[in-house]
Amino acid sequence: MINFENVSKYALNNVSIHIPKGEIVGLIGASGAGKTTMIKLSCGLLAPESGRVYTLDKNPVLNRKLYKNNISTFIAGVPLLCHDDTVSQGFELIRNMYGIEKTEFHKRYEKLSEQLDFGKYESQSVKNLSLGQRMRAELGAALIYEPKLLLLDEPNVGLDENGKSVLCEILTERCKNGMTVLMTSHDMSGVSKMCGRIALLDGGKLVFYGSEDNLRSRYAPIDVMRVKICGNIPDFEDLPLKKYFVQGDILTLSYNSNHITSAEILKLILRQTSVSEVSIRKPSLESIISQLKKGGYYELY
């Protein structure tokens, strides 16, 4: 869907990445790392200084025809709905601009306005809406013409928890039908929930690109298991544990999940004693990223 070949532009320095069809890719990194630049390069608002960008196999800067039903871009600061219009007027304008048939459009509008819940203020003008309300309407506007590729820059800003999970639902469902999403976000739990792949940018370089599990097993493989035991403390001398400690009847074990699986440990414990409660905690994406940032990204290169 999107192909970057040795692209340099502003902060970005020699980035190559391929984003396949039907995938939700989360673009993360500190402010100024070049996330928005990547989005703008993908939709053709920017041309690369060196290297090549292909979107749907075409150069997006020269092919403005791509925008028709193919790419939908949502960038903070580039609003899709006019300030003075009411929400429904804004959508009517979009319907006209993209030449969508009326009944079909209303079907989509009904569905989206119900999901994102902007139907109740559709007759208010956009400038009178709160940030969250506006975001919901704008996201609806970005989704309504069913693009093949959706580029989202910070879609979670201003959304409440319900909004975030609805967005996640919609994107996941759309991607099953073949839509591709490239989104930037600072909301790690959101990225973790919906993105099949994560692209991590630092200082203009792509330092990691792959699934979250991949990232975890490579850079933060330590899992923590808490077990509540009924009976005597089991013995695990020959297990490759990082450390363990006992506090009353609660046993806390940490171990490298690349070396041993939680199932194996649990099996061993159950053979020796009985257990009333188990919880396994993997490091969250957020903690992996902040941990990597503290340690510097050098080990990723």
Binding site: G44, L45, R64, Y67, T73, I75, V78, M97
Partner: peptide, 12 residues
Amino acid sequence: SGNFDRFILRPR
């Protein structure tokens, strides 16, 4: 103001 970007992204 960046409004021109919006024009560019539309199919007209």
